[in-house]
Amino acid sequence: MSRLTLYQLSANYLEALDALTDPEADLPAEVVNGTLEALSGELEDKAINVAKFLRNMEATAEAIKNAEADMNKRRRILESRAKWLKDYLKGNMEHTGISTIECPYFKLSIQDNPSAIHIMDEDAIPDRFKEPVTTWRINKAAIRDAIKAGETVPGAELANSTRLSIR
């Protein structure tokens, strides 16, 4: 006998209920009760099994959610350690005056970063470099352009830094 789906069992149950409770069918009460009990048992068994499957899916989803959180935490730790190692290596290369190291696998080199604006005193920054946000925000790109054009911007300076490149 083929297994019926929950939906099919529900439809069969309703059809049997309609047929068995039809006043013109003149079926004995024990036939009606026996048929309804058999259908009810199948429907209850199917519903219990579907509920068990549902609980299993929910538990699997929760386990995946926990694994994602654990993996996210591990990823953040690895990223932090990698940044520390990169800074450590860069610092040691700069300290010893070595700017390039080559090997068959990659090339390490100390490279200049694009100039960055270092704000020393926000209050000293002229209003033309302040953009309204909730209060105001300093437009570092405009300050950088002004300093590169030779202008002195009170409260700001152009700072250069380096980074370690691994190719």
Score class of each variant (00 low, 15 high):
residue 61 A to F: 07
residue 72 N to L: 14
residue 59 A to S: 10
residue 62 E to P: 00
residue 98 I to R: 03
residue 87 D to Q: 12
residue 93 M to V: 01
residue 61 A to N: 08
residue 83 K to I: 02
residue 85 L to G: 00
residue 84 W to D: 03
residue 80 S to T: 14
residue 90 K to G: 01
residue 77 I to V: 12
residue 87 D to N: 14
residue 103 C to A: 03
residue 73 K to P: 04
residue 98 I to P: 05
residue 76 R to W: 06
residue 74 R to M: 03
residue 86 K to F: 05
residue 94 E to V: 14
residue 88 Y to I: 00
residue 65 K to A: 11
residue 80 S to F: 15
residue 102 E to F: 12
residue 60 T to M: 11
residue 97 G to M: 12
residue 95 H to S: 05
residue 62 E to W: 01
residue 76 R to K: 10
residue 86 K to M: 07
residue 92 N to R: 07
residue 82 A to M: 15
residue 91 G to L: 04
residue 81 R to N: 10
residue 91 G to K: 05
residue 97 G to P: 00
residue 95 H to C: 01
residue 85 L to N: 00
residue 59 A to C: 05
residue 85 L to T: 01
residue 93 M to Y: 07
residue 100 T to P: 02
residue 77 I to K: 14
residue 93 M to N: 05
residue 93 M to H: 06
residue 63 A to N: 12
residue 83 K to W: 01
residue 71 M to A: 09
residue 70 D to Q: 12
residue 86 K to D: 03
residue 78 L to A: 13
residue 64 I to N: 11
residue 76 R to Q: 08
residue 103 C to V: 02
residue 84 W to H: 10
residue 69 A to T: 04
residue 64 I to A: 14
residue 79 E to T: 08
residue 95 H to R: 07
residue 83 K to P: 02
residue 78 L to P: 08
residue 78 L to M: 11
residue 82 A to H: 13
residue 103 C to R: 04
residue 83 K to M: 07
residue 81 R to I: 13
residue 90 K to P: 01
residue 102 E to N: 13
residue 81 R to P: 00
residue 88 Y to W: 11
residue 83 K to F: 04
residue 85 L to C: 04
residue 83 K to T: 07
residue 85 L to E: 02
residue 87 D to M: 13
residue 96 T to W: 10
residue 63 A to T: 00
residue 64 I to T: 08
residue 72 N to I: 12
residue 101 I to H: 02
residue 97 G to T: 04
residue 76 R to G: 02
residue 72 N to R: 13
residue 82 A to V: 07
residue 79 E to Y: 04
residue 94 E to S: 07
residue 71 M to Y: 13
residue 66 N to R: 15
residue 66 N to P: 00
residue 97 G to L: 12
residue 64 I to E: 02
residue 70 D to I: 10
residue 91 G to T: 05
residue 73 K to D: 09
residue 66 N to F: 05
residue 103 C to H: 08
residue 98 I to F: 02
residue 98 I to Y: 02
residue 102 E to I: 14
residue 89 L to H: 07
residue 74 R to T: 03
residue 97 G to H: 11
residue 70 D to L: 15
residue 84 W to G: 01
residue 68 E to H: 09
residue 96 T to Y: 12
residue 102 E to M: 15
residue 82 A to T: 01
residue 65 K to S: 11
residue 86 K to H: 09
residue 70 D to T: 05
residue 89 L to V: 13
residue 69 A to S: 11
residue 77 I to D: 09
residue 99 S to E: 09
residue 87 D to Y: 13
residue 59 A to V: 09
residue 91 G to R: 00
residue 64 I to H: 12
residue 93 M to S: 06
residue 79 E to I: 04
residue 83 K to A: 14
residue 91 G to M: 06
residue 75 R to Y: 10
residue 80 S to R: 03
residue 65 K to R: 15
residue 85 L to D: 00
residue 74 R to A: 13
residue 101 I to Y: 15
residue 65 K to Y: 12
residue 72 N to Y: 14
residue 72 N to P: 01
residue 65 K to Q: 09
residue 93 M to Q: 06
residue 59 A to Y: 14
residue 79 E to D: 14
residue 89 L to E: 01
residue 80 S to Q: 11
residue 96 T to D: 07
residue 87 D to F: 13
residue 93 M to D: 03
